[in-house]
Design a protein around this nucleic acid. Structure first.
Length: 703
DNA sequence: ATAGGGTTAG
């Protein structure tokens, strides 16, 4: 700030050169006002100072202000015009740059090279090539820009050819080529260029190190890191990320401790690395200790919470972010949306959606598919369809999002209709599409359609059916009572049957009381997934129902030997942007515990009048014994529904989520609750959605 | 005063 006190009025034209560099300096620090102040105070304004101030505004991403000043310039040289081009390019305005290029009075090599660079930056490599070959002259820089473009466009072979043609190859060109070859896995070729380089700098060393890291040769990278003559922030960070990338977090941590200057990028990578190995506390500690954070820091921490299933923490951090007025970036939005999906937090989801629209992220295909999934998981199908309809160019992922979504809700007619629309629009369905379509068929008992589609997969769409498709078919046949046919289908499978296939068979046996096949399926499941409690409990209940108590005892013994434990059931719902969670069959932890219990008792009374009695006889469902003994009205889903009845305004559906499959008693109770209260209740369990209305459920009592 | 290479986040 001392610069402010320099008496500007004393500048003569020779010191005005000094003024230009000061303008540039302040602009680079982000002090555009100071830069402008210096400029305004100048008595004599040579063309250089005009060029500086225009560049300063471009650098601060104020192109319109820059243009205003450009228009006021008393005289312009070629540098002014080139500055305008590069200013536009750095602000992503390639069309404006193009316009200037074709209308400027004269062009030199810098103008041409800038244009090539501009096209490369926008990913328009063909345009860049056209421009490059039209250029009247060329030098190392222009060759190198073109080389970089080809590398960036993934055309490494073409880059290599261009590289060989180059009359002069300087350090930058060689480094660029090394990076390209490494990206393509051609390590030895890259290393050859590296070894032959007449001179090397930090960047060439770092590029080579990153190359080894990308190709999973961290230890070689480390050797290079040890012998390089000089290291900077970036080289330390690159090495550190080499370790985090392959999960060697403790080594990364050691390196981080040894870093002379800890960059934000390195800290962010460290947060992600710690998150990967489940060290959430340490990750958060890093986050809290950082003096300086960028948007990547926030998205890294939120992503860690999201990936590790700490949804509430993720949302907390997101709201902290907004309180501190940090603009959420793209990856951050995606993470928060996934959190909203798994929590089914419609209120938060809507908020993120609004921001996506505000920052114009919502036209992206990737974002749209995550958004669709989010609305589907929240049970808001209409909104999901709305987002779907707004996507201008629908790819297979977008179609799959909506198909899978409808399928999870058991809306077979809609699924089949969308499937036909998809085929009509010329998009080829893939594996995921067929899982969705077949699931829908099985949920609604459309045996004929399901069979037809399964057949057409191979013959018409050239998609080889995988285990997941067989699982759908087994489910489809099993539900219809054709359990033996389902078993024969499994026997004809070319791929190996996985847990999902056997699980589907077991589910069918449970409903249709097919003891012999149930035992086969359950035993297969125990082999594939020895830690999964579901099949043990099912099998044990099956034995019990036949009075085979020795087998029950034997099974319980293996269970405790293998340390199998059932994950505790929990349900949650969102009220007023807050997620309320109910676990362990008790609401004691909840501040409104008393009211919830009173509500439940009132409901149970009403249900009794309607002819309902708690039913503990769901032996064939995977409900644990202990859980059965407990008073059934305390199951977490009932608590959540009761809370919903208290808090969710009339006319709005009550949306409850559960981490396990819904229990049979709760299912029939909730059906009746929906009837006697006249409310619509949407329950998402581990498998699918249940829409309760007027005493009926959309799953038709089969789940 | 205008053009080029290396590190993070779905």
């Amino acid at each position: 700030m001392r610069f402010l006190f320099i008496p500007y009025r004393t500048y003569c034209s020779s010191t005005a050169i000094c003024a230009s560099s000061q303008i540039t300096l302040f602009a680079r620090m982000g002090h555009i006002e100071t830069a402008r102040h210096i400029f305004d105070k100048l008595i004599d304004r040579p063309v250089d100072s005009w060029n500086s101030i225009v560049a300063a505004y471009f650098q601060n991403h104020q192109p319109s202000e820059a243009l205003k000043l450009f228009d006021k310039m008393p005289e312009r040289n070629i540098v002014s015009w080139n500055g305008l081009i590069s200013g536009y390019i750095n602000n992503g305005m390639i069309n404006e740059a193009e316009n200037v290029f074709y209308t400027m009075p004269e062009r030199n090599i810098v103008s041409w090279t800038s244009m090539v660079r501009g096209y490369v930056k926008e990913g328009m490599i063909t345009e860049a090539e056209r421009m490059f070959w039209q250029m009247p002259g060329s030098n190392v820089v222009s060759w190198t820009v073109m080389l970089g473009g080809l590398v960036q466009g993934g055309r490494v072979e073409d880059a290599r050819r261009l590289y060989e043609m180059m009359p002069v190859k300087d350090i930058v060109a060689r480094t660029s080529m090394i990076g390209g070859l490494c990206k393509d896995g051609r390590l030895s070729e890259a290393r050859e260029i590296f070894d032959e380089m007449p001179r090397r700098n930090v960047i060439s060393w770092t590029t080579m190190i990153t190359g080894y890291v990308q190709n999973n040769r961290v230890d070689v990278a480390r050797k290079l890191f040890e012998v390089m003559p000089y290291r900077n922030e970036v080289s330390w960070t690159a090495m550190l990320m080499g370790y985090t990338k392959c999960g060697r977090i403790e080594e990364a941590w050691e390196l981080y401790q040894a870093m002379p200057m800890k960059s934000v990028v390195a800290s962010n990578a460290m947060i992600i690395g710690l998150g990967q190995i489940g060290e959430l506390k340490r990750a958060r500690m890093m986050f809290d200790c950082m003096r300086e954070r960028d948007d990547g820091t926030w998205s890294a921490m939120i992503k860690v919470y999201e990936k590790k299933g700490f949804e509430l923490e993720a949302l907390d951090l997101f709201s902290l972010m907004q309180r501190q007025r940090v603009r959420p970036n793209f990856p951050c939005m995606i993470s928060v949306l996934s959190v909203c999906s798994s929590l089914a937090s419609l209120d938060h989801g809507r908020q993120v959606h609004a921001q996506l629209v505000r920052f114009q992220f919502d036209v992206d295909v990737y974002v749209s598919s995550v958004l669709i999934t989010m609305y589907i998981k929240c049970g808001d199908l209409a909104k999901a369809k709305q987002v779907f309809n707004r996507v201008p160019l629908k790819d297979v992922v977008i179609w799959n999002s909506i198909i899978t979504g409808y399928a999870q809700h058991g809306l077979a007619e809609e699924v089949l209709q969308v499937f036909h629309e998809m085929s009509f629009s010329g998009i080829m369905p893939d594996k995921v599409t067929f899982v969705g379509v077949l699931t829908a068929c099985s949920y609604t008992g459309k045996i004929k359609e399901g069979r037809q589609i399964f057949e057409s997969m191979k013959s018409k769409y050239l998609v080889e059916p995988g285990a997941e498709h067989y699982a759908c078919m087994v489910d489809l046949l099993g539900r219809a009572g054709q359990v033996n046919e389902a078993m024969s289908l499994i026997e004809t499978m070319l791929v190996e049957a996985d847990a999902i296939v056997w699980g589907a068979l077991l589910g069918a046996c449970r409903i249709h009381m097919k003891m012999d096949l149930a035992e086969v399926a359950a035993k297969k499941l125990l082999q594939i997934e020895p830690k999964n409690a579901g099949p043990y409990i099912l099998l044990s209940n099956l034995y019990a129902s036949q009075g085979r108590w020795d087998d029950v005892a034997e099974l319980r013994k293996t269970m405790s030997e293998r340390a199998v434990s059932k994950s505790p059931g929990c349900s949650w719902l969102e009220v007023g942007k807050k997620v309320h969670m109910f676990t362990g069959g008790d609401s004691a932890g909840h501040p409104e515990h008393e009211r919830i219990i009173r509500m439940l008792e009132k409901i149970v009374g009403l249900l009794r009048e309607a002819g309902y009695f708690p039913d503990g006889s769901f032996v064939l469902h995977d409900v644990d014994e202990e859980e059965k003994v407990q008073s059934l009205r305390y199951h977490s889903e009932k608590l959540a529904v009761a809370y919903g009845l208290l808090k969710v305004p009339d006319g709005t559906p009550i949306r409850v989520m559960k981490n396990l499959r819904v229990c049979g008693d709760c299912h029939s109770a909730i059906k009746l609750i929906a009837k006697v209260t006249g409310r619509e209740i949407i329950l998402r369990d581990a498998n699918r959605f249940h829409h309760f209305k007027d005493g009926l459920c959309s799953c038709r009592d089969y789940w």
